[in-house]
């Protein structure tokens, strides 16, 4: 797309790792500060959208094919619902994380982390896929 824009290419390359790290921070720090799976997924997705905008959709799809994203979108919902089903077998209600570990508070902590990971995966894959589809229509 923008083959002759060296400033954009260099700055986006410099920014990419920081955006990804920030997304991971928002994802796994969501229980202590603002943020969580939804915001982290959007930020993670926006870094790939930035890459696709600067280097073209074709290169972005080499890094992250849409098949992988389709699987990830479904996997996120599966992780979330699966956590709920696991708490069935450990002797609690659906999506009650108390019995996931020996201590209820630890169980809650693990449960929330896993569930937020599911949300983050689905949102990231969904946002990036929607952008891929929109951007791929024009050609």
């Amino acid at each position: 797309m923008m083959q002759r824009k060296p400033i954009l290419r260099v700055t986006s390359k410099v920014f990419m790792p920081f955006i990804l790290i920030f997304a991971l921070y928002v994802q796994f720090h969501g229980d202590f500060g603002p943020g969580g799976g939804f915001q982290a997924g959007v930020i993670f997705g926006s870094s790939f959208i930035l890459y696709a905008l600067i280097f073209g959709l074709h290169d972005a799809k080499l890094v992250l094919p849409s098949v992988v994203l389709e699987v990830m979108a479904a996997l996120g919902v599966l992780i979330y619902a699966g956590t709920g089903v696991v708490s069935f077998f450990t002797g609690d209600n659906f999506l009650n994380y108390n019995s996931l570990a020996h201590d209820p508070l630890h169980g809650q902590h693990y449960g929330i982390l896993i569930v937020e990971l599911g949300v983050g995966l689905t949102v990231f894959a969904a946002m990036t896929l929607i952008f891929y589809t929109f951007a791929g229509r024009g050609r």
Partner: peptide
């Protein structure tokens, strides 16, 4: 005491 998260928003949202 019930969830143990400093961010109440997260504990409401996810738990």
């Amino acid at each position: 005491d019930e969830v143990g998260m400093p961010n109440i928003v997260t504990s409401v949202l996810a738990s």
